[in-house]
């Protein structure tokens, strides 16, 4: 098992809908919960992770704040096209601490994961850390 979401594993963030240059989406995959990406208004919001290789994913964990509905999609193509939905969840509201949510994925293969936040508990939501457990 590896944490395949880390920048040090060759993962990249190739798209995000929001912009505050002090809080870039790369903060989601630097392995630290202290750094984060924050949305800058309106929904939906999304970002896409591109892995260095095709992965068999077993578990995705997301640390976030004020996210309400999140959809996860995957692509198995090399150019981030043809996404298909694989999970959807309504997160519980937390106050004063981060939300932590697991998605068990039983070894689904993917080259990209797309995270779409369709609603929030506030105008602005943050994602602090995404970890992806899988096998190359």
């Amino acid at each position: 098992m590896i944490d395949a979401a880390l920048i040090s594993s060759g993962t990249q963030v190739i798209l995000s809908a929001s912009s505050d240059e002090n809080y870039p989406p790369e903060h989601v995959i630097d392995g630290k919960a202290e750094t984060f990406w924050i949305s800058t208004g309106m929904f939906p919001q999304e970002f896409i992770l591109r892995f260095a290789d095709t992965l068999k994913i077993t578990l995705v964990t997301i640390h976030s704040y004020n996210v309400k509905n999140l959809k996860m999609e995957k692509s198995t193509s090399s150019d981030a096209t043809e996404f298909e939905g694989i999970a959807e969840k309504e997160f519980e509201h937390t106050e004063g601490h981060l939300q932590a949510n697991d998605f068990s994925l039983s070894g689904t293969t993917a080259t990209h994961l797309r995270f779409i936040i369709t609603s929030g508990y506030d105008h602005f939501v943050s994602v602090h850390k995404v970890t992806v457990e899988g096998i190359r």
């Binding site: 912009s19 505050d20 240059e21 800058t40 208004g41 309106m42």
Partner: peptide
């Protein structure tokens, strides 16, 4: 530089 978006 921050660019916010607001639905009015």
């Amino acid at each position: 530089m921050v660019k916010l978006r607001a639905r009015c």
